[in-house]
Design a protein around this nucleic acid. Structure first.
Lengths: 154, 154
DNA sequence: AAAGATTGATGCATCAATCTTT
DNA sequence: AAAGATTGATGCATCAATCTTT
């Protein structure tokens, strides 16, 4: 194995990421629940739908873009439909599939939650970092991420 | 709120971390299971016990140091006792508490698993990164982590 | 009463099976 | 048969209650 970096750095970075994630995700989730009345999974779906053309996405595509398993997306969208934030729209071009589409209530809920979410990330994740740290972190994590699928493990 | 960094960078870094974690952790866990016959949670506990003085740690301290909830530690250590990798040792100084201690079999299991684990981290996490990337990532994540508890949210 | 730890009950995420349409 | 999606069953993680010792 040819190595271009020291093992220690890669390993420590990995360990630090695991610990940081384990601390921050439950914290942010609980705080978002408290302040905005919705879990992180809801926010994630609302965010992606809000950014999408026509505020709607096929269930399949939503599964690709969101940090949830494709199966989980079905459950979460169900919850959001119950809450009145999303509606299911049949796809006229392919009747196997369906769109999830943000309702006006869903758009409002997202707009109310967004600044609270941003504030939580700033405080809990961003505040110990300098401008350069944040920029660098973004760049390196994006690079690691880009190497991703197309990944043929095994 | 005084800001020293651009929101975009912090937010993108956060999103990238969520996505990278969501992709890598299940992958590493499955691969470690396949190659070494143990889940990540076992490895984590074995690693910490192996590094500890006398290869043993109070359950409480193990909970602090490991990426698992204190409750979960009880379950995982139970599994490891069943597997013969860990034994429970009463604490003579305080009979409320107990030590988890690595058995010789546990030490061997850890020694066999460690190079496989390292290789998985190198391949899936480290390979897209340069030496500088890894070093920087380590530094910045460690900084974010250090800011952590002592954290008075709410 | 608080610290250290475990455990029954619950809730959440995933897997495999299933359904419909292409 | 494969694509898109859902759902019943299962397995894992957490919460709250509990137990023992300090």
């Amino acid at each position: 194995v040819k190595e271009t970096w020291r093992d220690d750095d890669v390993l420590s970075a990995w360990a630090a990421m695991l610990r940081l994630h384990a601390r921050l995700v439950p914290l942010i989730d609980a705080e978002l629940q408290r302040l905005a009345g919705m879990p992180l999974a809801w926010y994630d779906v609302l965010l992606e739908l809000n950014a999408a053309a026509d505020k709607s996405l096929r269930m399949f595509d939503l599964g690709e873009v969101v940090v949830l398993s494709r199966t989980r997306v079905s459950r979460v969208v169900d919850e959001l439909v119950q809450a009145g934030f999303v509606e299911k729209v049949p796809n006229p071009d392919d009747r196997r599939s369906a769109f999830a589409k943000l309702t006006p209530a869903g758009t409002n809920a997202f707009r109310r939650a967004a600044p609270l979410y941003l504030e939580l990330i700033r405080i809990h994740f961003g505040s110990p970092l300098t401008a350069g740290d944040a920029k660098t972190l973004r760049r390196v994590l994006a690079k690691a991420l880009a190497a991703g699928p197309g990944d043929n493990s095994t």
